[in-house]
Write a protein that binds this DNA or RNA. Structure first.
Ligand SMILES: [Mn+2]
Ligand SMILES: [Mn+2]
Ligand SMILES: [Zn+2]
Ligand SMILES: [Zn+2]
Lengths: 145, 145
DNA sequence: AAATTTTTGCAAATGATTTGCATTTGAAGG
DNA sequence: CCTTCAAATGCAAATCATTTGCAAAAATTT
């Protein structure tokens, strides 16, 4: 069901497939433990160390990206294709930024600093429209009492 | 010597001053333990937990930024003013990106996604000019034997 | 279906970060 | 200076995410 091709020499296991599929379904990069728990719920037998081992190898192979979010101390994992995003500070919702504006910027960096550029990651923190309206409602009602 | 004003209610201690000064001197965001060791070397008496406690409070107050670098699992800490940077994958050198190109991009994000934007962080991974030439030297000499 | 290689689960180890608590230090007044 | 009190420190112990060793299970290959 997961349409991601495993690198040469790695076997297809139900645990590995399930992890990849879950990452595909989820826009929000997940904690290792969340992956473990969600798959358990779905009735898939696996262990937390299997989750870690798979994420680690997928990351080394470039299929998965490991990232830390603001004010969090455990890693999140997501498919490498979903790398630039907006994060709502209220509800943790994530919106993928496509048409990444970085490409234009890249040229400039190469020119100015002489770096060979291998990759990048952009995180933008803010409040999503839904939470914005919630917050102003709360503010209004607190004014009224 | 450190020219950073502490937030209201916090006392000036030699440990705190030393940590801030070290962060000021260093372009590269540092591991908590590196801060601890470097200050010990300089003859300053402090403990690792003091380093952590201070970094934590400075981060909550917005003076310090905590970040994880690619392929590292422990946090680095740097002054908040030095937030967007280039990282050399070889030597870990960091080049601060000033004239952050994000501002132009911001408008677009607000318009398209309706987010209120509170902050952002950009990390670019690559190889610096010095390491580029080292790598090609190594390559050439390995070809010659 | 036997042989080979990879993967898994479990329990134990690791290592960064945090915390409790007794003691020291800094700032403010007198 | 001296006193007072909150804030900060050091140390040891605790926490908790992540890693690892090893024997058993599963996937590929013969
Ligand atoms: Mn979680
Ligand atoms: Mn270090
Ligand atoms: Zn939201
Ligand atoms: Zn370099």
């Amino acid at each position: 069901m997961a349409n991601i091709k495993l690198p040469e020499g790695y076997k297809t296991t139900k645990q590995r497939q399930a992890i990849l599929q879950l990452l595909e379904e989820n826009v929000v990069p997940m904690h290792a433990e969340d992956i473990y728990l969600k798959l358990k719920e779905k009735g898939i037998e696996l262990s937390l160390s299997t989750v870690y081992r798979n994420l680690d190898m997928l990351q080394r192979k470039g299929l998965v990206v490991k990232a830390y979010m603001l004010n969090e101390d455990k890693a999140r994992f997501g498919l490498a294709s979903k790398k630039n995003y907006l994060v709502c500070q209220e509800c943790r919702k994530i919106v993928i930024i496509d048409n990444c504006p970085f490409e234009k910027f890249k040229e400039e960096l190469i020119e100015v600093h002489g770096f060979d550029i291998l990759g990048h990651s952009i995180e933008v923190y803010g409040v999503c429209p839904e939470c914005k309206s919630k917050v102003s409602q709360n503010f209004e009602s607190s004014q009224n009492k």
